Each structure stands twice: as structure tokens, then as C-alpha cells.
Amino acid sequence: MIDPLETAREVLRTEAAALEVLANALPDDFTGVVDLIAGLSGRVIVTGMGKSGHIARKIAATFASTGTPSMFVHPAEASHGDMGMIGADDVVLMLSNSGEAAELRDMIEHTRRFQVPLIGISSRPGSTLMQAADHLLTIPALPEACGIGMVPTTSTTLTLALGDALAVALLRRRNFRPEDFSVFHPGGKLGAQMARVSTLMHAKIPVVAPDTPMAEALLVMTAGGFGIGAVVDGGRLTGVITDGDLRRNIDHLMERTAGDVATPDPLTVPPDMLAAAALAILNDRKISVLVICEGDVPVGVLHIHDLLRAGVA
């Protein structure tokens, strides 16, 4: 009986070895392709048939999410009207391990007729695709990991990895930042981690003046529901009253004012801070609430539960 774990190791080692070969022998046109796409005013149209089509969809999605406008066009659908999706300012990135998929020929002809730059990714430099292409990204012609030489495994892994390499090279060329990434990922875990404090904070702040009697300050804190009171004088935050401050001043508490009890110069964060960074501060300081300030003017309150509900953790 064949051990499935040993089969898995064999497949992974075969593909890992192939990636090492590709890393040590990147196509000569790679830098030229990065330059071409970086200066593009249109989009990268990624296409492929069969398994190459699945890889093409992923490459297009990676481009689009990292600042390179891109979309997938199915080659067969292109032959039936979708060729109009390819504009004069676009570039076509065409994937085909053999370079001979019949469904690609109409799109190849279209790029030649309208002088749309064509980038080919294939393991066969003498194929129809690669002979027609303006830029050749040739991947090593290495054995597939299936053992029978027919199932696209090694070849699709190499193509996908080369697409990732292009996307990251372009990302770094554009100095693409985490805040740029968040623009394209407003939902899900990534979107939550890239959210700004300003999008999660509460604008209604439990505010008391420095001379507010603690009996009244306690009512404001309780109504606020955050377990704190912001001591504000002339529009400036001068202190924060927390549950810890109340315990430390329990003796004769009702004889004191908010200014007497508050912690001066409290920790605050700006509204444009990343939510993930704010969560790190809360965890590090072992506190549950932050006052959000623009300069020394309070503009909101952020509770750790707001971050947890948003999926930041």
C-alpha cells in the first residue's frame, strides 16, 4: 500500500525543487515586464484555459488587490464578444504551459491586430503563444509532480509563483503601503486589521470638568458605559478617571472633585492610528479603553470590545 504521507512529501519536494530552479533562472524579460506594467495606463488582462485559467484568475486578483488594475478574461468567452474588454491601453498576460491551447488563438490574433502588448508564460519557448508574444516569461520545463507526467502540478505552481513574483515586484516598485492595501480589502480579517481607529471609535465621550464633584462625575461615567470619565478643561483633555482611580481614592471619594481623582496626562491615540496598533497598546498596557485625541482635544472613545467585535484580534 502506498503511504499517502510519503506521496505528499514527494509532491511537495518536487514542486519546491522546481521553484528553486525558477528562482535561480528567472526569465530574461522579467524586469522588462515589470517596467511595462508599472508604466501602464490601462489594465493587465490575464487569461488562460483550463488549469491555467484558474491560475490566471488568482494572478489577476493578486494584481488588483495590490494596486495593479487587472481582470481575468476567459479566452473562449473573448471569442464570443468579450474581446471588447481589452482596451488599447491594456496589456495581455497569457498563460499556457504548452503554448498551444486552441482557445487562445483568437485572443492572440486580436492583440497582434490592435497592437496590444502580449506577455506569454509558457514552458515552451517555440510554441505558438511564445512566438507571437512581445515579452516571454518562460518557466522551466520540469516533470509534473503527479508521477504520470500529465496532471498540471509543477507547471501550475511555477506559473502561480511567477505571477506572485510579478505582483510583489510591482508592489514594491509603487511603494505600496499597508494603508493602500486596506483600500482594496475593506471586508474580512484583513479589512478589520487595516481599519483606522476613527472608523471604530465612539464620538460621544463621557466628559466632566475638573471641578465637577465626584458624585456627579460617577453619574456621567455610569451613563457613558465605558468605565471612564474624560476630564476636559477649555476643550483640552487634562486627565482621565478610570475604575483604578476610583479604587485608589475610595477614602473620602465623595468629598473630592474629578480633577483631584483623575490621572493627569493620560495615554491617548490619534484617530488615524491603525486599529491593530490600538489593540496592541491596549493589550500591552492591560487596559480596556483609550481616549482618542487630535492633539490634546478629545474626539472619541475606543473600547477593546469595539475592536474584538470588528474582528481586529
Results as ranks from 00 to 15, higher is better:
V312I: 08
R105M: 14
D211H: 14
A192W: 03
D260G: 10
R256T: 06
S41C: 09
F176E: 12
T222C: 09
T212C: 10
P143E: 09
A56P: 01
S98H: 12
A278M: 03
V269Q: 02
F181S: 09
L158P: 02
R309D: 12
D180C: 11
V183G: 12
I148E: 13
P270A: 04
T66H: 11
T68G: 04
L95I: 00
A165Y: 09
I205G: 01
F72K: 02
A223S: 13
G239D: 06
D306I: 02
V34Y: 08
I108M: 12
G227V: 04
T7S: 14
H135Y: 15
K51W: 06
G225W: 05
R105E: 11
S155Q: 09
Q193N: 11
A64R: 04
L160Q: 10
I148W: 10
G81M: 07
A141K: 15
I45W: 01
I121F: 05
M1G: 11
A102E: 13
D180T: 12
F72S: 00
S127N: 14
T68F: 02
A313T: 00
S52N: 08
V289W: 06
G67T: 07
D296V: 12
M49F: 08
G53M: 01
A275K: 00
V297H: 15
S127A: 15
P178N: 14
G295E: 09
K189S: 15
A209I: 05
A195K: 07
G39A: 14
L237C: 02
D265R: 15
L190T: 10
T111H: 00
R256A: 07
I304C: 01
L93M: 06
G234K: 09
M201I: 00
G87M: 08
R247V: 08
A258E: 05
V197G: 00
V116I: 15
P117N: 09
I281C: 01
I108N: 02
L237V: 05
E103K: 05
F226T: 02
R248C: 11
P264Y: 13
L160A: 11
F30D: 08
L166R: 00
S98T: 13
S198N: 05
L93D: 01
E255H: 13
H252E: 12
V91R: 03
C146H: 11
L19Q: 04
F114Y: 15
Q131V: 14
P186D: 13
N97K: 10
I292C: 01
D233T: 12
G244H: 09
M71A: 05
I59W: 01
H303T: 03
A209M: 10
D306R: 01
G229N: 05
G224Y: 04
G147N: 11
A38Q: 11
V46S: 02
T222Q: 10
A313K: 03
D251K: 09
P140I: 07
H54R: 13
P140A: 12
V299M: 01
A195Y: 03
R174H: 15
S122N: 13
A61V: 08
I108C: 02
